[in-house]
Amino acid sequence: MAWALVSAIKDQLSSLITSEFTSIANVKGEVQKLESKFHTIQAMLNDAEKRQVKEEAVKLWLDKLKDVSYLMDDVLDEWNTAMIKAEIEKQQKD
């Protein structure tokens, strides 16, 4: 479950890399660093999800991570919406 949330965020970050907006002032490099970190997090989540059955602390940690993942997903959605809106406004001016 948590893996799916992180995967969705990673996919959104990947789409940002290909966007023209990522070429602005090192954003592309920062997004690539984040994407790399999410790959590491996914590997750790695979192990943690197996351990949560036996370890209550791991289960609590995964629940907190899930909450944070939802917040991150919301922020990325808002950013994507703002970028799309800016692109539409730019096209309307042309």
Rank of each mutant, 00 (worst) to 15 (best):
L60E: 11
N46V: 15
S19G: 07
D47R: 06
V75W: 04
K59V: 06
Q92K: 12
L13H: 09
K66G: 11
R51T: 02
D73N: 12
A8V: 09
V75F: 05
V68R: 11
K37H: 09
I84M: 03
L45A: 00
V53Y: 05
K10L: 11
I88R: 06
V68A: 09
K93E: 10
K28N: 14
Y70W: 12
L62Y: 04
I17P: 00
E56N: 01
K33H: 05
N26Q: 08
K66R: 09
V27C: 13
E20N: 10
V6N: 05
A57I: 03
E56P: 01
S19I: 05
T22D: 13
M72A: 13
K37I: 02
I24W: 14
T40M: 00
A2M: 05
S19V: 11
V53R: 02
S19P: 02
I17D: 05
E56S: 04
N80P: 01
K50Y: 02
F38S: 08
K64R: 13
W79Y: 15
F21N: 06
V6K: 06
I41Y: 05
I88S: 06
A86R: 01
E78F: 04
L5M: 11
A8S: 12
S69Q: 03
L16H: 09
K85F: 03
A86K: 03
K90C: 02
L34K: 05
K50A: 03
E56W: 02
L16R: 00
M72S: 11
E87W: 03
Q91E: 14
E20I: 03
I84C: 04
M83D: 00
I24Q: 10
K10F: 13
Q52M: 09
L71P: 05
L65M: 04
E49Q: 12
L5V: 13
S14K: 13
K90H: 04
